[in-house]
């Protein structure tokens, strides 16, 4: 089976709607298909990666820890847009760190998140074969 470049585009905040959660479910299932997978977080999608999510009082499932498992699924190209962070008064420190172990580098722990500009994000989109938006 041929390998395609899959890009999952996340532009919506978590909890207000189910899209972030169900998008993550697609990414986890899709990881088994050994495609070239990247995730894009832009616009309100950057809120999905916010640190310190606690959902006990709203009575919903807190799915933010699941993002930290992505590295174990070999999903380690996670692009976050700088301009989207800026527009929301956020920095990388406001997001939970996501890491993976690089098998080509003696399993060294590396950051999965890469902060990119709008122009770089546009190029990542341009290079994708299949773009899934939720």
């Amino acid at each position: 089976m041929s390998t395609k470049k899959f890009l999952y585009v996340n532009r919506k905040a978590p909890y207000g709607t189910i899209y972030a959660l169900e998008s993550l479910e697609v990414v986890l299932i899709g990881a088994a298909f050994e495609q070239d997978v990247s995730l894009a977080f832009l616009d309100d999608g950057v809120y999905q990666l916010a640190k310190g999510q606690s959902t006990e009082e709203v009575g919903m499932k807190n799915f933010s820890p699941t993002y930290r498992a992505l590295g174990d699924y070999d999903v380690n190209k996670i692009y976050v847009e700088q301009e989207s962070l800026d527009a929301r008064g956020l920095t990388l420190d406001d997001l939970q760190p996501l890491t993976y172990e690089d098998e080509d580098d003696d399993w060294a722990e590396k950051d999965s998140i890469k902060v990119v500009s709008t122009a770089e994000m546009a190029e990542i989109m341009e290079q994708s074969d299949v773009v899934m938006s939720f």
Partner: peptide, 10 residues
């Protein structure tokens, strides 16, 4: 399952 969506993409 969701695999059907990924397969459709491929």
């Amino acid at each position: 399952g969701l695999g059907q969506l990924i397969e459709a993409g491929i």
